[in-house]
């Protein structure tokens, strides 16, 4: 477990974006959405949920699929898929990460969507655990532990530090790049926050959402594909 002071987060962002493209929640004109980091942009990790889900980075509303050159009557096609730069997706909430897993089941299953795959492989996902879930949160129903998110790297944020725990090789590789910014330790603060979060999640109105009121047919689909099945 590593930790870094909140004030030094900007250095972390700068370090990461030297090596890779950094995408994280940015506040623009009053709304928070995932966007490319740049010096001076207002990063807002406190906002519980961004307006649009981060899965856009893998499956954007519109993307250039190819380029072509015409000269007179003949046309030449240029493939641009290989041009995808390595990316870091920072500040993904546990429920959003589950959304990405759902998408993986669709796009990475045969026949594989090469555009999606291209992006997915080039991206390292850093999840951020929730500290103050809201009344409309229903992550518990889908087996998501708001306090201990999955992802290449898991992070927790409290009053003064960001705690960093790499989970996969991609996570390790990224950690290696920025290791010198961190200090060891922070397990205690993390587990303290985890207790508090889990307590709140229990009390949420939708903690025990009864899925049966949905028509029987749909509820089985939910349970079969989502609840914990890998």
């Amino acid at each position: 477990m590593l930790k870094i002071a909140k004030e030094r987060l900007n250095e972390l962002y700068a370090a990461i974006s030297n090596a890779m493209e950094l995408v994280l929640p940015v506040k623009k004109a009053g709304e928070v959405n995932f966007a490319m980091w740049a010096e001076g942009k207002e990063v807002s990790l406190e906002t519980l949920k961004t307006v649009k889900s981060p899965k856009d980075t893998f499956f954007p509303q519109s993307e250039n699929m190819m380029k072509f050159k015409t000269d007179g009557k003949n046309i030449e096609i240029l493939d641009i898929r290989a041009e995808k730069a390595p990316t870091v997706l920072f500040g993904v909430r546990p429920c959003d990460y589950k959304a990405i897993e759902v998408l993986d089941k669709v796009f990475l299953a045969d026949p594989v969507d090469t555009y999606y795959q291209n992006r997915r492989e080039a991206t390292t996902i850093i999840t951020l655990a929730c500290a103050k879930p809201e009344e409309s949160c229903f992550c518990k129903v889908f087996g998501i532990d708001a306090a201990a998110p999955a992802g290449d790297v898991a992070t927790w944020l409290d009053g003064d530090n960001l705690y960093w725990q790499a989970n996969t090789e991609k996570g390790e590789a990224l950690t290696a790049l920025v290791k010198e910014l961190f200090a060891e330790g922070g397990e205690a603060e993390v587990s303290a926050q985890q207790e508090k979060t889990r307590a709140i999640v229990e009390k949420l109105p939708f903690a025990t959402l009864d899925l049966s009121r949905l028509s029987p047919k749909t509820s089985t689909i939910y349970s079969m594909t989502l609840l914990g099945r890998k």
Partner: peptide, 9 residues
Amino acid sequence: KEQLSKCIR
């Protein structure tokens, strides 16, 4: 420009 760039159609 800033406001409309938020538009997600």
